[in-house]
C-alpha cells in the first residue's frame, strides 16, 4: 500500500501538469487560430459587438423575428431548460398561454399552423435558431410592424435558411439574430 501510495501521489502530480496544464494550454493555442480567437464567435454592427453568433437573444418587439421561449430568458450567464414533463398540467397551461399570445400578435394565423417549437422552451434556453416554417409564420407581422412589403421580408428569410450539413444531414434552420440583423439593414 505504502509503495503504491507514494507512486500514486507522484504520478498524480505529473499527470496533473500534463492533463490539466499542458493540454488546455495547447487547446487554447489551437483556438487562437479559429475565427473567434477562442473567445467564442461574435457578431458586430458598426464595430460594436452585439452578440455571439451561436447564442440566442430575446426579441420581444413585433418588428423582430422572435425566437423560442426560454426557461432562463436567454440569460447566458447561466443556461437551462424547463424540465417540464409532457403530462404536467401547469406546463400545458403555460403552452396554452404562449399560443394565445402568439395568436394575438399574429392576426390571421391559426393555431394549427404553429410549429410546436415556437411555444416550447429549448433545452439550453439559449437556442439561436428557428425552423424555416416558424420564421415564415412571422413574416406578415414583421412586415406590417416595419411597413415593409411582405415579399421583401419573405425573401430575406429565404436567404437566411441554412441548409442541412452537406445538404443531407440534420434539419434546416434559421439563425434569428442574423436574420434580425439583416432586417435592420433592410431599407
Amino acid at each position: 500500500m505504502k509503495t503504491y501510495l507514494i507512486a500514486s501521489i507522484k504520478l498524480t502530480l505529473v499527470l496533473l501538469v500534463l492533463l490539466a496544464g499542458v493540454y488546455p494550454v495547447l487547446v487554447a493555442g489551437i483556438g487562437k487560430l479559429s475565427s473567434g480567437g477562442g473567445g467564442g464567435e461574435t457578431v458586430s454592427r458598426n464595430g460594436q459587438v452585439i452578440g455571439f453568433a451561436n447564442v440566442g437573444q430575446v426579441f420581444t418587439q413585433d418588428g423582430y423575428f422572435q425566437g423560442r421561449p426560454s426557461a432562463v430568458d436567454y440569460n447566458a450567464a447561466g443556461s437551462g431548460g424547463s424540465n417540464k414533463g409532457p403530462s404536467n398540467p401547469d406546463y400545458l397551461t403555460t403552452v396554452q398561454a404562449r399560443i394565445d399570445t402568439f395568436l394575438a400578435h399574429n392576426p390571421g394565423v391559426t393555431r394549427a399552423q404553429i410549429p410546436a417549437e415556437l411555444v416550447t422552451a429549448s433545452g439550453s434556453g439559449l437556442d439561436p435558431h428557428l425552423s424555416p416554417e416558424a420564421a415564415y409564420l412571422q413574416v406578415a407581422r414583421v412586415a406590417q410592424a416595419r411597413n415593409l412589403p411582405e415579399q421583401k421580408v419573405r425573401a430575406l428569410v429565404q436567404q437566411h435558411v441554412e441548409a442541412p450539413l452537406l445538404g443531407i444531414l440534420g434539419p434546416e434552420k434559421v439563425n434569428v439574430l442574423q436574420l434580425n440583423l439583416a432586417l435592420d439593414a433592410l431599407k
Partner: peptide, 19 residues
C-alpha cells in the same frame, strides 16, 4: 401538445434544440 392542435412536423421539441 397534439391535443392543443400544434404542428409537430419533426417531433417533440420541448427541451430540444432546433439545430
Amino acid at each position: 401538445l397534439a391535443q392543443l392542435h400544434l404542428l409537430q412536423p419533426t417531433g417533440a421539441m420541448e427541451g430540444k434544440e432546433v439545430r
